Simulated assay, not measured.
Amino acid sequence: MDSTAVESKPGSWLSPAFADRAEQVAIVILWAFLAWRVDLSDNPWAPLLLLSESTIAFFTLIRRPTTRLSMRLGDWMLAMTATCAGLLIVPGYVLSESLVTVGVLLFIGGNLFQLWAKLVLRRSFGVAPANRGVKISGPYKYVRHPMYVGYGIVHVSLLLLMFMPINLLIYAIGWWAQILRIKAEERVLSQDPAYSEYMTKVKWRLIPGVF
Rank of each mutant, 00 (worst) to 15 (best):
S137M: 05
Y93K: 14
I207T: 04
D75C: 00
L50F: 02
A79L: 01
T60S: 12
I179K: 12
P44W: 03
A19P: 06
H155W: 15
S52L: 10
F211Q: 03
F163G: 09
T55C: 14
T200G: 04
Q24D: 08
V127F: 14
W36V: 14
L78T: 02
Q178Y: 10
V134D: 03
L105Q: 05
L106R: 09
E53D: 07
R63A: 01
W116M: 11
Y148A: 07
G209E: 07
R144K: 09
S12A: 13
L206T: 00
E185S: 04
A17M: 00
A5Y: 03
V202G: 06
S52K: 07
A57P: 10
V6E: 03
I108A: 15
P146M: 05
E7Y: 14
P129E: 03
A46H: 06
G11T: 13
G150H: 11
S196K: 09
G174C: 03
L73F: 06
L169M: 08
G133P: 03
A32K: 02
M77C: 13
L180A: 11
G138N: 02
P193D: 06
L106Q: 08
S96E: 10
G138L: 04
E97L: 14
W36I: 14
I56W: 08
T67M: 09
G209C: 08
V210T: 04
I153R: 00
F211C: 04
E23L: 11
W175F: 15
G109C: 15
M199T: 12
R181N: 05
L160C: 10
K203G: 03
I207M: 01
G92A: 12
V210W: 15
F125L: 01
S98H: 12
V149G: 04
Q178K: 11
K135A: 12
M71D: 03
V154S: 12
Q114M: 14
T55L: 15
P47N: 07
S157G: 07
L161I: 08
R122M: 12
P129D: 02
F58M: 10
V143Y: 09
S8M: 05
T83K: 00
A194F: 07
M147L: 12
Y171W: 06
F33L: 14
A22T: 06
L78G: 00
S190K: 14
A130R: 01
V156E: 10
T55V: 15
Y148D: 01
L206N: 03
S196W: 00
V94I: 09
R132I: 05
Y151W: 13
N43G: 05
I27F: 02
P129K: 07
F163I: 13
D42M: 14
M199Q: 09
T60K: 07
I170Y: 00
L119N: 07
N111R: 05
T66K: 01
F211I: 13
A130D: 00
G11P: 13
R21N: 07
P91W: 08
K141Y: 02
